[in-house]
Amino acid sequence: MTSLIVEGVRLSVPDMAVPVLNVDHLMIGSGAHVAITGGSGSGKSSLLNVLSGLERPTAGRVVWEAVDIAALSESGRDRWRAEHVGLVMQDFHLFPGLSALENVLLPAKLARVASEALKQRAGELLVKVGLSRPDQHVETMSRGEMQRVAIARALLREPGIIVADEPTASLDAESGEAVANLLLSIAVETGCTLLVASHDPRLVERMKRRIAMRAGEIVSDTVDAESSA
């Protein structure tokens, strides 16, 4: 759905001489399924943060479908992300004390965009990710269920991009597998661009394109022969 062009992106942090991210050129086609791999500290999360607008690069352009999000203001990037990116993180980041449904709707409510249609969609999404009790409080759920709630939340506003940072890392093999299946099937179904940073071979191997990183730079970029993402 949404294509990306990255040019000359550097991300520097105050106490380090070399930039933690240094990507001269990267293109990702609309609807691509991309795995980002690399050792701990190689810059996977940094790259995803820059691509999702969570962090502004020190230099360079991050152009999603003609919008250079690196040039947007902090609030502008927040707004853009809310509309275009569904985020899934290793640590779920659900809010205890609220039900699964309330968690799915929370960001939309806070952004004052939670229409009746969206509320209905939230319920449907919970069913879709395999949860039958939308009113269950999230703190009483298993980790696998929590990540499903997080995925439903990411999908609520029909994002063109799904960004997942180690979505299976804190789950056991079985739940990890289920979450991986869910992410892939949804990406296929909706045609959205899927970016996943992961160590998990079961997830990585199922992505058509794999980008390997080391020390903040892209060291290899392979595409499975049978596809052309």
């Binding site: 969570l54 993180m89 960001p107």
Partner: peptide
């Protein structure tokens, strides 16, 4: 901090964070 950061990451505007 994490909770507040997460709220924004998932699409809540900064003003909502301030208001909360």
């Amino acid at each position: 901090r994490r909770q507040i950061g997460a709220l924004r990451a998932f699409g809540a505007p900064r003003t909502a964070v301030f208001s909360i």
